[in-house]
Design a protein around this nucleic acid. Structure first.
Lengths: 224, 224
DNA sequence: ATTCCGCTTAACAATTTGATAATACTATAA
DNA sequence: TTATAGTATTATCAAATTGTTAAGCGGAAT
């Protein structure tokens, strides 16, 4: 599993660095770590991360300063930045967001929160900036409501589109059948289990790609 | 740096208000903030904003209600409205667009997304109001109110013109039926679904081009 | 007053979509 | 191996959606 995303972490506490690095690598991210703000600024230039996690309290330049310096450079205008704060300090949180961070995390960081925030940010980035989900050669445009593979348009019916769109929104993630039902059919409508299968089948047929995997007894996942 | 544009923000969470206000002021906008829907309606009259950002979930009148009330008043027909939603809830998003909003933002709002969306909306506004839209060989002149294909004038009735004009304003984008109704007929008037079809048909007939695609169960899109 | 034109709707046809049942298949555990 | 649970496939029917035509209405122009 490799997401192809690079994350730079700056924190002066070795324990934190280790925990974050371990977990994020396990999620398929490429990770670099540094111990203070100045190193963060340097490393950011060479490493070109997609996401930077900055501890607020660091010796030398603190996280907020680093963030401001980064945001001044055009190369990091679009880079995601998450602050790490020792406690849920509200004023700090606001200062963080004001200085151009995209989110914040409070320490100690639970692995669940960590991975969900990180993946949510990446998802949001691709979704909001373009409205287009792209996985490999497959493009899903929610606004234009079309799907194309290597430039070739593929016509999907509404439910098929929504289903594929959902699965592809988080490649690799296994969507439980219930999750799919709730997302696409809502809680009011009740349809049989076979219905999902049939739609999945139609998508597979139309895409003619081996990209939707069945996880028996669990659900489906999308992966190219 | 001063854009001369006024933005009104309505949200019950002080943190959000503060962050948005700070960032938008930094971008050169004049900002006013209110804490609920009723205040938003009042303030809108005196402040005459160019853009209104409405939280969907607010005590008293919610954002969607406020939007509908605003859109009923001629003074706010052209005002830009953005919804703020707590989560990336797609059904809310669609409801928002259907009720006449121009865009939506999911909270927490990254500063990057915020400024890009806002400036994009203003850009679109000035573009549309001055409007000569050209897509391939097709020209739509909003001021002269005429359409021509390869120099040849095509006479369209008002509704037909507006409909084509709307669809062509964003080629490729699928316009939901409700979106179309809100944009062209407004929220007060209620017309049947067939009405849209008939106008679409007439446009297709008159243009004699295969440029309006039906996306069944979703809406229509324009593409040459 | 009459005619023309644009807008809307009703009515029906045509089409597409979605859901289900019935059946076949497949991996796994007993 | 066989039983079993879960999934795949297929055909079919009902429902949803859209296309088309014609007709009615009302305002503007003649």
């Amino acid at each position: 599993m490799n997401t192809g995303k690079k994350i730079l972490i700056a924190d002066d506490e070795p324990d934190i660095l280790e925990i974050l690095e371990f977990n994020l690598k396990a999620e398929g991210y490429e990770v670099a770590t540094v111990k203070n703000g100045d190193q963060a600024l340097e490393k950011a230039k060479t490493f070109q991360p997609d996401l930077i996690m900055l501890d607020i309290m660091m010796p030398g330049k603190n996280g907020i300063e680093v963030c401001n310096l980064l945001r001044m450079q055009p190369a990091f205008k679009k880079t995601l930045i998450i602050f790490l704060t020792a406690m849920s300090d509200e004023s700090t949180e606001i200062k963080g967001l004001e200085s151009g961070a995209d989110d914040y995390l409070t320490k100690p960081v639970s692995t669940k929160v960590l991975s969900s925030k990180v993946s949510a940010l990446f998802r949001r980035l691709t979704k909001e900036s373009t409205g287009v989900v792209q996985v490999g050669d497959l493009m899903i445009d929610r606004e234009k409501y079309n799907v194309s593979y290597r430039g070739e348009d593929i016509v999907l019916a509404r439910k098929e589109f929504e289903l594929l769109s959902l699965l592809a929104s988080k490649p690799g993630k296994v969507f439980l059948r219930n999750e799919i039902l709730n997302q696409i059919w809502g809680t009011e409508v009740i349809v049989g289990d076979r219905t999902i299968d049939v739609h999945i089948r139609k998508i597979r047929q139309k895409l003619n790609l081996d990209c939707i995997t069945t996880v028996k007894g669990v659900g489906y996942k999308f992966e190219l």
